[in-house]
């Protein structure tokens, strides 16, 4: 459902539309990085945001976890809470199987409207990892 209203700015017509759902074609925004403890994202732990991307539904995202990840850390990915839980994680060919069926990401909670996924164990990544949003 959406509502559109109009106003004028000098001679320009300003059209404003409010919607309760994303606009058609609106992409999903996701964040990823690593965190030092398995708990929710809190100030007490080290949380490093390594990347963000805006992708179309069904698109693949290359999440590069390498930079600064000098020691094994929990990996996280966050998407908007209102998105359906359909994120599919899968391994790239060269990640040594560190992510995949044995290294699943699961939802640990919601922070400021963002659903946070976390890896099951601490991981040391030397390559990139992909995930797909559907």
């Amino acid at each position: 459902m959406s509502v559109t209203v109009f106003t004028k700015d000098d001679e320009d017509v300003i059209e404003i539309t409010m919607s309760v759902i994303p606009f058609t074609g609106t992409s999903k925004k996701v964040y990823w990085g690593w965190m030092s403890t398995p708990d929710m994202l809190v100030e007490a732990q080290i949380v490093v945001l390594q990347g963000a991307s805006t992708v179309l539904s069904g698109a693949k995202v290359i999440a590069d976890f390498r930079t600064g990840n000098a020691a094994p850390m929990y990996l996280f990915m966050a998407e908007r809470e209102t998105e359906p839980i359909k994120t599919v994680w899968y391994a790239t060919a060269d990640d040594s199987g560190a992510i995949g069926p044995d290294q699943v990401f699961s939802v640990i909670g919601v922070v400021n409207g963002w659903r946070v996924y976390r890896s099951k164990t601490k991981t040391y990544f030397t390559t990139t990892t992909e995930f797909r949003l559907s």
């Binding site: 106003t7 409010m18 606009f23 209102t82 919601v110 409207g113």
Partner: peptide
């Protein structure tokens, strides 16, 4: 209906207490 002076009117919104609120705003000129 175009507001000729000041902000556009009528963009009312209803929310439910305790639920996450999200609204998407698109502005065209």
């Amino acid at each position: 209906a175009v507001s000729l002076s000041g902000p556009a009117l009528g963009l009312d919104t209803s929310v439910y207490r305790g639920d996450t609120m999200e609204r998407y705003i698109q502005i065209k000129r």
